[in-house]
Amino acid sequence: MSVDVESILRTVDHELPPFPPKVIMLATGEPMVIRQASRDEIPDILPHVEALIHHDRDFYDVVAARVYSELLGHFKHRYQDQYLLVAQCDGHLAAVVNGRAVDAKTGMSLHTLGLRRGLRAGAHAFAAKMEYHFDQLGHQEVLIVAESPIGFRRWMIEYKLEKRFEIPHELGGCPSWSLTRALFDRARGSLVVGSRPVGKELLAKAMAAILPPTDPPKMAPDFLAATRARYDSTGTAIIARTQK
């Protein structure tokens, strides 16, 4: 009898409870729906993540590359106990957040990828995933790291996270920070917003399809190309880059 190798390689996923969708009004006045996305929807999301892998700004490249690998791993059953939430405006993707249940008490926050900038879409989605950890998964703490200064300000400072530096985080082995249930309960009033239930039509629109982001992060127009030596490895632009 042949051994079913796939069954050996596959993760042994636990059944994770559903995330009750919610809706948040953005600064533009548009409603943004945050809901759980299923494994089957991952192929609809990946192209939009892939586009950002070469976006060398605010660590979008690192975050997008890792989100891509996590989602692909999840899709092909190589990433244990991962969940995925998406934020959508009129069906269009605005943010992707994911995380993992480590055990009954501990959650591991993976990534927050904002696909619309300047409207705190990512911050709203992050708050939603913390809600999921504490309210649905029943975790007592969630381990978090930031890969960009923006993330650091949002999570570490706004939520006043505690240090768990003795625990290497799954993302690159960096020292972990912890959002405990007590800290989260304190932040609920100010940082966790939005309402439930989501209107029928709004939800139907969001569930129907994940549409491409309307205004994904893009590099500034390269108006300065005329005067600088970007491709010259001895050029000043490179010096400026390494000074950062």
Binding site: I24, M25, L26, A27, T28, G29, E30, G118, L119, R120, A123, H124, S190, L191, V193, G194, S195
Partner: peptide, 17 residues
């Protein structure tokens, strides 16, 4: 980004935005 009064002042989620 076009912003709206509901989104930044009047709406329920404005204080977070």
């Amino acid at each position: 980004n076009k912003i709206s009064m509901d989104g930044i002042l009047d709406g329920k989620d404005a204080s977070h935005n």
